[in-house]
Design a protein around this nucleic acid. Structure first.
Length: 462
RNA sequence: GUCCCGUUCGUCUAGAGGCCUAGGACACCGGGUUUUCAUCCCGGCAACAGGGGUUCGACUCCCCUACGGGAUGCCA
């Protein structure tokens, strides 16, 4: 079996977005499960929009999420001579020619074709003119006028294109620089790529690229065109309909492994399983099982997957992942006297790390906001709150057992329901009716702090 | 317009002609556990785009229509 070599070829015109990440993921997984290599090629031939910052962002993010390439990435902007040399080879073989049509000529031509109800495409008017190269000519590929190209796609089977649907595409611009299709084909050959896995928006590019390969006598490649990731409006995922940047998801507190999991499940599934890690994917993934239709990215599924991945972490791993989110809101996680117990009790309080960090605030900082509805519901009787304050003041051994027995005794003596006793205290401590078991919650605070917060609520009520 | 790709619950999907009374998961709704919340457990709701064929039988095969997406650049 020949080794599989795949590549991810981003244009550095923006930060790494999750659609691109998914393409990279499938490329990575497919190569790894075939003991092959995963490469990266930066397609930065669009000098206007490409930046080094975006390039660094893409590369850093891929590596940090676990999709590091097996070789140093190459930049197309540095490989001009290679492409020009390839173009010369095509000229020598007679499969390319110079064309002096101006952009204005072409625009007019397309307009006339459209008005005549035809498909706008270059009509090959310079094809047999034998024009010389000048600073106004572009090099065009002489595409076969009949016959067909069959693209063999791992996901979609055979896709046929009539050659007469394709026009003579430009290989070299009038300024001598190579175009996307030429660079792409030459680099896939130079990097010894065996399998091209990319978005389905490239399907119709494929026959064009195969013609260039043929003109250059390059070997055939294997293709797999992935369905696109869509927003909730069923349109291609973009900044307009969703958060697209990987960084945004990380900042919201989604684990890398959960993001990978969600992206893999978009278009692919395996039995009734939902939770997958990268290592599972390398074992289980099969590119032939990938769905053909575009998939809407559903954030609630990501939320749930995140909660599953969070639950699978050991306490120490969990703390390590949570810490930056607490630091961001100026909380020193370890400053709490009972950290491990607190974090363990609170780790299911939200699906995201930022949400969990938020819900931890009352345990580290003074509270100023209260759930007013909860106050109305549970603290109509200020006397009870004062009694409870005194009860707590009277607890001498500040530990779980004695706190709990004091509370239950009080409840029994006064014939009160549990919420009647517990919720006022909870509100005083956290501002809301949500917290772990009340006895446990109380141990997360010093007796002094508990009294202070109860006094504060009493003040508020008066 | 033309070419190409696609179309199963709200969403992600299972389904390779009878196993389908179309399965699972998320979301949602209801119940249980939890003194609250979350977790967890149980239950419920909910789909084969439409029309023709082929076949004893079609979610599965073929054709047409509709709808969605992509391409049609001296962008990538």
């Amino acid at each position: 079996m020949k080794p599989v070599i795949t590549r991810f070829a981003p244009s550095p015109t923006g930060t790494l977005h999750i659609g691109g990440l998914r393409t990279a993921l499938f490329n990575y997984v497919y190569s790894k499960q075939n003991n092959g290599k995963f490469l990266i090629r930066i397609e930065d031939t669009d000098r206007e929009r490409s930046t080094k910052e975006f390039e660094k962002n893409i590369l850093d993010n891929l590596s940090s999420i676990g999709l590091a390439p097996d070789e140093d990435p190459i930049n197309q902007s540095e490989r001009n001579e290679i492409y020009v040399k390839a173009a010369e080879k095509i000229i020598e073989s007679g499969k390319a020619y110079w064309c002096d049509c101006s952009p204005e000529d072409l625009e007019l031509m397309r307009k006339e074709q459209t008005e005549a109800g035809k498909k706008p495409m270059y009509d090959g008017r310079s094809r047999n003119l034998g024009l010389p190269k000048t600073d106004k000519t572009v090099l065009r590929l002489a595409t076969p006028e009949s016959g067909e190209i069959v693209v063999k796609d791992l996901i979609r089977g055979e896709i046929k294109f009539n050659n007469n649907e394709l026009d003579d595409l430009i290989l070299l611009r009038s300024d001598g620089t190579p175009t996307y299709h030429l660079c792409n084909v030459v680099d896939d050959f130079e990097q010894k790529i065996t399998t091209v896995i990319r978005g389905e928006d490239h399907i119709s590019n494929t026959p064009r690229q195969i013609h260039i390969q043929n003109a250059l006598d390059y070997p055939e490649l294997e293709y797999a065109h992935l369905p696109l990731v869509l927003g909730t409006d069923k349109k291609r995922l973009s900044k307009r309909n969703a958060a697209t940047s990987l960084e945004e998801y990380r900042e919201k507190g989604y684990l890398d492994s959960a993001i990978i999991n969600a992206l893999a499940r978009l278009g692919w599934s395996q039995g009734n399983n939902e939770v997958f890690y990268l290592t599972d994917l390398i074992k289980e993934f099969n590119i032939k099982d990938v769905q053909k239709a575009g998939a809407i990215f559903d954030i609630s599924k990501l939320d749930w997957l995140n909660s599953q991945h969070l639950a699978n972490l050991t306490l120490n791993q969990f703390k390590k992942n949570l810490e930056p989110f607490l630091n961001k809101i100026n909380i020193d996680m370890e400053s709490h006297s009972n950290v491990d117990s607190l974090i363990e009790a609170m780790r299911t309080s939200s699906d995201t790390l930022s949400g969990i960090a938020q819900s931890l605030i009352p345990y580290y900082q003074d509270i100023n906001e209260y759930d007013e509805k909860a106050i109305d519901k549970f603290i109509s009787d200020k006397n009870l709150l004062m009694q409870l304050r005194d009860l707590i003041d009277g607890i001498n051994d500040w530990n779980l057992d004695s706190i709990e027995s004091s509370l239950t005794n009080f409840q029994a003596e006064n014939k009160l329901s549990t919420p009647a006793v517990n919720q006022p205290i909870r509100i005083a401590l956290t501002g809301s009716t949500k917290s772990p078991g009340l006895g446990l919650t109380l141990t997360f605070f010093s007796k002094k702090t508990v009294l202070e917060r109860m006094d504060k609520l009493l003040d508020k009520k008066s």
